[in-house]
Design a binder for these strands. Structure first.
Lengths: 205, 205, 205, 205
DNA sequence: CATGAATGAGCATTCATTCAT
DNA sequence: CATGAATGAATGCTCATTCAT
């Protein structure tokens, strides 16, 4: 994969919607090129094939998310506050790039197959949450749980599925507001739980 | 789609792993037939094509999940207890059928496109949770939240992503035990939250 | 490469002319299929690609030549007489199948690359001549030469190039007669030499 | 085709091996440029395309052969002696440029299609031999044969195939010596024949 | 002069699907 | 009923060639 010129990169985003809509396998290279407004052969000049185009787009978005989430996670404040910010940051990026985001999930199965993608996902989404959980225990703003890995994964799942669902719906126009609203719901659940009886830190079973 | 003989159905499960691994679009009909150990043409005798094979497998699993989760959700006991049972039931089925489960998620993007599948997913996974949330408010074992839809979706996401992750790993041999362990973590998070300060029912923002 | 039905094989000969005329690389698969009167996909059902089609045709012809030449070489009579018969036999087959023969030479370069083809060539053309040379020395009808390998190769070259030239010209209609005439010239040269002075068995240098 | 700088010309010989190995059609322009160590676009600055590159190389070699053979053929001495010299000269040039020589033969089929190449071949190889045959009859050092054209072609074939075979083998390091050895064998055959019985000038059939 | 970047046109190959037996 | 053989239709990709710099 050659160094992709910024101009080309921006054009490629025009194809993300297509890939999201139809899935990579059903999006013809011709169509992708058309959607991006470039000759098909030019795609092949820069990428080795379809897959690499998607990989490029995903990598781009994951980097963006990793950046935003990382910023939120490393801001000053309690780990708990930063966790809330991180949740909102991830949702914000997802809702800002609904097409790429849907493409990502549409080919999430691929994540199972492409270790590279799996690693990037881990880096962008999962690790920051896991870190914040640990920091929260240290600074006393979050309680200790038995299996932090499973909990981090759960939170990641809650954010991702809700974000994806919103990205698919795509009804609203104010993505920042949507992100904030959804983040609030998730954080409420994540921090306060649903139980009416006093919290039982040892779990319920 | 003709009535599928049980013998054939069981053989088809042998192809689920392949579909999970490669995605439906990248799994050639030849390969699917080979994996199932039947002639390609026989597939076409019973199914109208690739898609119907996957649909058959998914329908099978979704029905199973819907059944298990439905049973758990309609058992006697508090809504809160039943919610916990439902979470574990969903995880148990997922871990019992990791290949089909991965195939399902691998082609989750398809859910965006196939209304039928989306509806079945909704029915099997999402609705039971939403119902239990409402019942919990009624019977006082779960607190009222601001956006029950978003919360239900979050819980669904937490279960699904954690379950999928476990299905992909597939390291353990005792899936029932795994399901119980993961369910405990999720339920702990879901019910008790992570906050150390007293729960703030009004949310945190 | 699947077992090629006789009917298909015979149809394929219709494509030999095309390959001979244009060279394998410049003969489009579509054209080959058209020339043979079969669907392109059927070609791919039986062969792995263009190359295998040519290989099949060549193998077929080489086998034919090997047979004819072998018959001539193992007939009763002196080695010298049989050598003459073999020369004519080779020429006869070449002139009987000018298209395949030209295709063979057109892609003779390929012989350098495909060991399989080189071996078949060796078997069909070269070895029988070399054997006859040795037998001629034994039965006293041919004289001993210093480098029998080089001489066999020279004879092979003389036959092949003359035969090819005739195949390319393709003017005459009586290929058997042509073969006999050319064979006579080659045999005269090969047996009697061009020198006017008495033969000098030790060579001339 | 622009005037080709000597430096470039010499670099191009580095590509002859590639063309010999793969055939012109299968040698990508990129590869040829790489093999020559020059940018692809530079090739197009000097040549109109692939074909012209090969043509340049072949013309170069054919000119060389024509020169060497011509020199040998027009030296003082009997026609018979000069024929021997010409045979060795051709073999010497072929073994001196094995790659170009193989490329030439590899695309010999092309000779069927490119009249220009056929003419050059005729000029370089065939005509000198035919002339010498005639001169030999005149000066009494070679006997009259029935079909001088066929005999000349046979001799040409013997030389070419033996030379090519040696070029492909390429085992030896002393090409001049190889040429001499092979030439001796061919001349022995060509002049003295293989028959043990007294030469029968009327042919053997 | 020489060349890196870009592309138009072409084509081999794949694969889901059909159907006679 | 089940299937081996056959194929129509589609598409990913290659590569020779151009041209602005």
């Amino acid at each position: 994969m050659r160094q992709v010129p910024a101009k080309l990169a921006s054009k490629l985003y025009g194809a993300a919607e297509l890939i999201a809509e139809r899935g990579l396998a059903d999006a013809k290279v011709d169509e992708i090129a058309d959607a991006a407004g470039i000759p098909k052969a030019t795609l092949y000049y820069y990428f080795s094939g379809k897959d690499e185009v998607l990989a490029f787009l995903l990598a781009d978005m994951l980097e963006l998310i990793a950046g935003e989430v990382g910023t939120a996670a490393s801001a000053p404040g309690s780990a708990r506050d930063r966790l809330e910010s991180a949740v909102e940051a991830q949702l914000a990026v997802m809702l800002d790039h609904p097409a790429v985001c849907r493409a990502l999930v549409g080919d999430l199965g691929r994540a199972t197959r492409l270790p590279e993608l799996a690693a990037a996902l881990q880096e962008a989404f999962h690790r920051p949450i896991a870190s914040l959980l640990a920091e929260g225990v240290s600074d006393g703003t979050l309680r200790q749980v038995e299996d932090p890995g499973a909990v981090a994964l759960s939170i990641f799942g809650a954010i991702t599925v809700t974000g994806l669902s919103a990205a698919v719906d795509g009804s609203s126009n104010d993505s920042a507001k949507d992100a904030a609203r959804i983040a609030a719901s998730i954080c409420d659940l994540m921090l306060n739980g649903l139980a009416t009886t006093p919290a039982n830190p040892e779990g319920d079973r």
